[in-house]
Amino acid sequence: MKNNTKISNLANEELLQHYIESGDIAFFGELYRRYIPKVYGLCLKYLGEQEIARDAVMDIFSNLTEKVKQYEINNFNTWLYSVAKNHCLQLIRKDKQTIFIKIEDAFVENEDIFTLTDKSQTPEELDALEYCLGTLPEEQRKSIKLFFIEEQSYADIVDVTGYALSKVKSYIQNGKRNLKSCIVKILRTPQPPKGVVK
């Protein structure tokens, strides 16, 4: 399918760079193509209908071919996210007077959020983590452990625990938040809580 294997081997950042330098639409086309599942999914979420979402994906592409050159883009993913989201919201605004935004949007987490196992951690942090896991409610602790330590997917956890899918998601979400506040509190207090753990 790809005529130009060279282009498809380039990384996202390189594609963007080449496009801005040369203006050759082939580079940007390839970059955008890689994001189509995400953009289409996003449009589905906000617009709700396949036909409209499909048109929106194409519209966003033709809007961006010019726009991309005008901005200094550090993170294409987040940039595209906000542009695509705005496009969808504008479509909704045109269509309806009121916009319904799901409450879950409020819980979307930021990149700087605490990650449990992604980073290497100091012994103090691990101790704190272990202690705080113990303080969580049963469902949250179970879900968190399965998700982050045993690396099971939501669907796996549903199978193992028998909780509903939406419950699993919220257990992990809430558990993560509780863990974070607990760990931050412990690491800031002068006395290490080791005695308490044992």
Partner: peptide, 13 residues
């Protein structure tokens, strides 16, 4: 979890 774009896309699908 760390990419709201991906999160929204999955929700959309």
């Amino acid at each position: 979890m760390n990419d709201p774009f991906l999160q929204d896309a999955i929700e959309g699908f």
